[in-house]
Design a protein around this nucleic acid. Structure first.
Lengths: 256, 256
DNA sequence: ACATATTATTCCGATTATCGGAAGATATGG
DNA sequence: CCATATCTTCCGATAATCGGAATAATATGT
């Protein structure tokens, strides 16, 4: 269905690999992994074994699951040490921060949380959910989280929201249902907006990072004082963010 | 030829991916990548495109090369933040350090260098080549480097030695040829030994990390004062290191 | 600016690996 | 110890893969 210049088998293996990250230290069982990746169990089995053989995955001694392996760790250490993409994201965030007079953040999904891996507070120090690089937020809290959820399958997003429920600061007017609706809205708008719901007077906008049409489990978000981000400027802010992210990713512009 | 439970296509793609790390920021051209991975150019082209489509690779805007992509960076950040394997390696190094009364290090290959990603100096502060976590050594200098080279194809190892020649402290008795011979010896012995050649009075032993029979571009090494590591204890030290590494990797013991 | 060499990309038919249902094995829990 | 769930292996029909050769795009030298 997709391009003819693409190997479907490898595509499945890579999807499987991406999903393995969600299992964290304990990994995923064969069935879980197969289901999340949308492939049959025998096929998943063969592909996972291939990943294991090449050390991209491994099986914890105490269980029959699969988790990310030493080869990924090696790539990770090298990637971090050589600052593989950090500089480009920092540039991206700096642009956004400068143009919007807001703090800008890059989140990546880590299991059921969003992990802040880059941040640019610009000239203004704001209280934020993640409080900067290394900070974590349960998926469902704040616009960055919502934008990441919007990139996932709806059933998966809802499952995560349910698991994170205790940490999502739910109230009478803020329920799992309203959050799920916000995720759907984000999916359809292409951005997530928090009008000061979580931290009073702090507004945020976030967009998911899309690479070649596939949503990555990453999001770029901004946070600013409500007075600095009137609703009518949200659309403009988004356009600006999308442009900056597209530049960071290279040529292929962000869709929507 | 190999196991029937393994996908050859995916195997090739993963090998390709591993080799992409060697290109650093500039990446590798199609031809280079295909050659290093040992596959034909059309196939490499298709597989690399698949990697690009899934964001595991990307093409720098200014060249036609391929390099590691945002998805790898994302996995990397998550892996580091959740300390995916760090704890196990630290335990491994601590065991080695305690048992041998020597400093212990974990190196991973980063292009033409070895990058120290974990270190345990034990009770003794020694001068070392990499001087600890984050330190870099050109491949060819020190036992850890040699052990990594020993895990590569001979032609590739020699090519790296040649490129690194200016940094390898060559002398009349220490030439590219003797180094190449040391790599071959390490490949056949299963360990690399430095009898104080680089830093006087500092001896080191290193073994490559092997996962399911495939050498990973990683090595565990020790460094201690010459008086503490007489030649006759080298074999024992190696056995001990191999056992510790096998434990760190899970069940499958280190061969040789 | 043109010609040439190099490298990347597309095409396509023969080959071969892949896919997934069903059967068998292994672990888990009562 | 048996029942249940999950994982793993088997195997033939199917469909994707492979790589040589042709073509296109880019880099290099004059």
């Amino acid at each position: 269905m997709a391009d003819k210049t693409i190997s479907e088998t490898v595509e499945k293996a890579l999807i499987l690999l991406s999903h393995l990250a969600e299992g964290g230290h304990d990994g995923l069982s064969l069935g879980e992994a197969a289901e999340r990746a949308g492939i049959s169990k025998p096929t998943a089995h063969r592909l996972l074994n291939t990943l294991v053989q090449q050390a991209f995955a491994e099986r914890p001694p105490y269980s029959r699951n699969y988790r990310l392996g030493p080869a990924i760790s090696a790539l990770a250490r090298v990637g971090i040490a050589t600052d593989l993409h950090g500089e480009r994201w920092r540039t991206c965030l700096a642009e956004i921060s400068a143009a919007t007079e807001a703090a800008a953040f890059l989140f990546v999904r880590a299991g059921d949380e969003a992990l802040c891996v880059e941040a640019d507070f610009g000239a203004f120090l704001l209280p934020t959910l993640s409080s900067g690089i290394g900070g974590r937020v349960p998926l469902g809290l704040g616009p960055g989280s919502l934008a990441i959820l919007a990139g996932l399958a709806e059933s998966e997003a809802d499952a995560i929201l349910a698991r994170n429920a205790p940490r999502l600061r739910l109230t009478e007017t803020r329920t799992l249902e309203t959050l799920s609706a916000q995720v759907r809205a984000a999916r359809c708008n292409g951005y997530a907006f928090d009008p000061g719901e979580i931290l009073a007077e702090v507004r945020g906008v976030a967009i998911g990072v899309v690479h070649h049409g596939n949503p990555l489990p990453m999001a770029v978000s901004t946070a600013s004082l409500a007075s600095r981000l009137p609703e009518e400027r949200v659309a403009d802010t988004c356009k600006l963010m999308r442009k900056a992210v597209a530049k960071a990713l290279g040529a292929p512009s962000q869709p929507l």
